[in-house]
Design a protein around this nucleic acid. Sequence first.
DNA 1: TCACCTGTAACCATTGTAGTTACAATTACT
DNA 2: AGTAATTGTAACTACAATGGTTACAGGTGA
Lengths: 142, 142
Amino acid sequence: MSISSRFAVAIHILALLDINKEGRNTSEFIAGSVNTNPVVIRRVIGLLGKAGLVHTSPGVGGASLARQPQDINLLEVYRAVQNDPPGELFAAHDKPNPKCPVGQNIQGTLDTVFRRAESAMENELAKVTLDQIVFDLVRGDR
Amino acid sequence: MSISSRFAVAIHILALLDINKEGRNTSEFIAGSVNTNPVVIRRVIGLLGKAGLVHTSPGVGGASLARQPQDINLLEVYRAVQNDPPGELFAAHDKPNPKCPVGQNIQGTLDTVFRRAESAMENELAKVTLDQIVFDLVRGDR
DNA sequence: TCACCTGTAACCATTGTAGTTACAATTACT
DNA sequence: AGTAATTGTAACTACAATGGTTACAGGTGA
């Protein structure tokens, strides 16, 4: 399966918060841009808030970036909205037969390979900042 | 979500086929090592067969590697058992609002980033051959 | 022939996701 | 103070992917 679209939605939200930092960003307004339900937006913003990426205020509030866009990279966003802990992009098969020479050692062998692959992906995400995303978005608008 | 454990199972199967190339590798025998149901094994072997990684013979058959273990890399295995087409590790959010400057361009921007990250992961998988996996397995056994 | 095995269909339980409704709590504005 | 707007969260639904299981038709080799 694929990585949940929460990640894409989260990036969309953060970019919008930066571009529209003067306006009032209600979950309904954001939902209009993302084209989904306001509750979905609030859920994602909740995750981003817990991760310290946005500030939210209850009541008639709205959200705003908690940091400068050049100080937010996509790996942070990824970790914020992906509830699986790091190191579990690839699922292991559980309880291989310990009596079999393959089953006995396969877990460790796979773990090494899987971690390397996952890290390679995450390193690419870490390279990209929200700033760059916004720049690319605005540039595409011309 | 994470990448299905079919990938881990597939690697397990291939390693076993190489190590036990003298024996008769029935789906039931393999299932014993993987610790799952024989039908699950047959399903995965079916995918590996379609991808040209193993030879299978119906009836009283069993499976065997179709290529030398040093000529099989994990990216091939990954693609064989992952039914999502390449480029879809990350899910996009569908139909962002085209009237919004963010919604209008976000898809393309994300696509570039996502593809880069996915490729980085796949490149790591491509580096590892079945041969290396087996070597590591056997080494761990001492 | 017969025991064995594969390939595949069918069904089920579980899980994660996203959309939706509803509502208490909070806040800003007048 | 009163009111309208908005958040945070719970609860429910629908849907898709996964992995386990049973069942069985058909191929294979002794």
